[in-house]
Each structure stands twice: as structure tokens, then as C-alpha cells.
Design a protein around this nucleic acid. Structure first.
Lengths: 133, 133
DNA sequence: CATGTAGTGAGATGAGATATCAAGTGGTGC
DNA sequence: GCACCACTTGATATCTCATCTCACTACATG
């Protein structure tokens, strides 16, 4: 919330409601979910707020295996995601290996790297161990 | 083309046209481009054929930085992409480092990895060296 | 408390992709 | 060769997701 204030945005009821809700979401979320759970807030406002939070780095956007967009709170500074293709839960991880790799790859690639995207699709432990298919 | 036949799909004129066109594309393409360049082929058919080729592994889908989908021929078996955010050109690369990383990461991640997505956004050499902004 | 402005919600609109369905074809059996 | 039938196709309608529009609201400030 403070993040938005710091960037000169107002603290409004809809924004507070959205952020409160997001903070209670462990597992990543879609815009539709948020909009459904906050029927008093207009869809447009949800999209607008999500976009602000994205720009502020509070949340990050990722893609499901089929490309459908999903979001998750950024708890760790620079991280990547695992998405369970079964239950849809999103995990965050920060493998030192990844960072080393990124630096190594920078040399192999012609041009100047300005960003990257990296997601792992998994069947999570919970889904592996039993929960009925 | 043979790939489709092998999977029991018919060899039809529209499909041939699409595949011929794709083979001439160096730099990745969007569905819209293909559809525009083949006005005699229906949009739906383009989507259908693209989907078939995707399933057959002939082409692969990637996402621009903003999430817009783009496709490219798979020339190398297992590879990743670089996308120039300036001109949109798509490059393929196969860094051994990446494969080693993937194996290393498999251990760090809870659950079973079933797939991944990895794209690098760059400003390509051509764009860096001069072409007017 | 009055004012200017950022923010909001409802609905229209736009883009991208898919579904529908009658009409058209490829390729197999003959 | 030819006829047949399931697979394909194209035009169009439709769906979904996201953004735009615009009159209205409410925040923060003086």
C-alpha cells in the first residue's frame, strides 16, 4: 500500500480492498478471481490497480502453460516461478544457479539483454502425493 | 509437411500454403501476419494449422514481453528464444549452460517438473548498431 | 468548506481466438 | 479412373479478456 503512496498515487477504498485481498492469497491469482471476490469494485479498477502494482514491482505477472496470465505477490526480490499444472498453485524460488546462469548466458547471446521470462511447470508435491485426480 | 501426414492428417492446399510460408520466415511470426499474407486462407484454418504444428513440435509458441503470442519454427531440438524488443525478431539459441541449469534446478524445486518456459528479451545487435530509433 | 484533480464504475468497444455449420476435398477402396 | 465419406475448410457468429470512455465521486489541499 505504502508503495503506491510513495509513487504519488492515492490511497482509495477500492485499492485498499484489492491489496488486502491479494495479501491473503498464497497461491497466485487471476484478475477474474479478484474481480469476482470484490463485486463492489469495477473490473476496470481491478485491472488498473493490478497494472499499478505490477509497475511498482509489488506483484508479478506470469503465464500458465497455455499462456493464460496469472499474478503473484513478489515476496522475494528477484525470483522465478513454479506453476502446478494440476492445481494451479504458484511457488516462488530463487535458485542461486539461475542467477549465475543468467550472467553466463548474457555472453552467449548477441545483443543486450533487457529482460527475461522463466517459468517452470510442475506437478506439485501435494498433487503428486495422492489428492485424487 | 510430412510430420502432419505421419500423424494421420491430410495434406491440403491451405496447410501446404501455410507451411510453405512459415518455412520462408526467418524471424518468427504472428498469426495475424500469416493470415494477412494468405488472404485466401480463412483465419480459423490458420489457427487450426498453427495448433497442429505446435502439437507436432514443428513450431513453438513464445511470448513477447507484453505477453502477446508469437511463433517460430523449431530448427533446433530443444532451444530457447531471444526476442528483440525493438524490431521483434526472434532468435533461437541452445546454450549448454541452460540445459545444465535445468537439471540442477530440478533438484531445488519441490514437485516434478513437466515443462518450462524461458525467453530472453534483448535489443539485438542490428538495432543496437544504429538503425534509427 | 470549496475546489481541482485523480480515481471510479458501468457499459461500450476492441483484439484475439474459438465454435458453428454448410459446402468443399483428399485419399481410400473399388 | 471414379465415387464416396470422413476430414477440412471458410464465413460468420460468438466468447473471453482487457482496455477505453465518460459522467460521477471523493480525496487532499488550501
Amino acid at each position: 500500500m505504502a508503495v503506491l503512496e510513495d509513487q504519488g498515487y492515492r490511497t482509495t477504498a477500492p485499492r485498499r480492498a484489492i491489496i488486502d485481498l491479494l495479501e491473503r492469497k498464497e497461491e497466485g491469482f487471476t484478475v477474474e478471481e479478484i474481480s469476482d471476490e470484490l463485486p463492489t469494485v469495477g473490473r476496470a479498477t481491478v485491472y488498473r490497480t493490478i497494472k499499478l502494482l505490477l509497475k511498482a514491482g509489488v506483484i508479478c505477472k506470469l503465464a500458465m502453460m497455455d499462456g493464460a496470465p496469472k499474478y503473484s505477490l513478489s515476496r522475494i526480490e528477484h525470483h522465478h516461478h513454479t506453476v502446478c499444472i494440476r492445481c494451479g498453485n504458484v511457488g516462488e524460488f530463487r535458485a542461486a544457479t539461475v542467477e549465475r546462469l543468467l550472467r553466463a548466458i548474457a555472453g552467449d547471446i548477441p545483443g543486450e539483454i533487457v529482460g527475461h521470462r522463466m517459468e517452470f511447470y510442475v506437478t506439485c508435491d501435494r498433487c503428486l502425493s495422492g489428492v485424487a485426480s
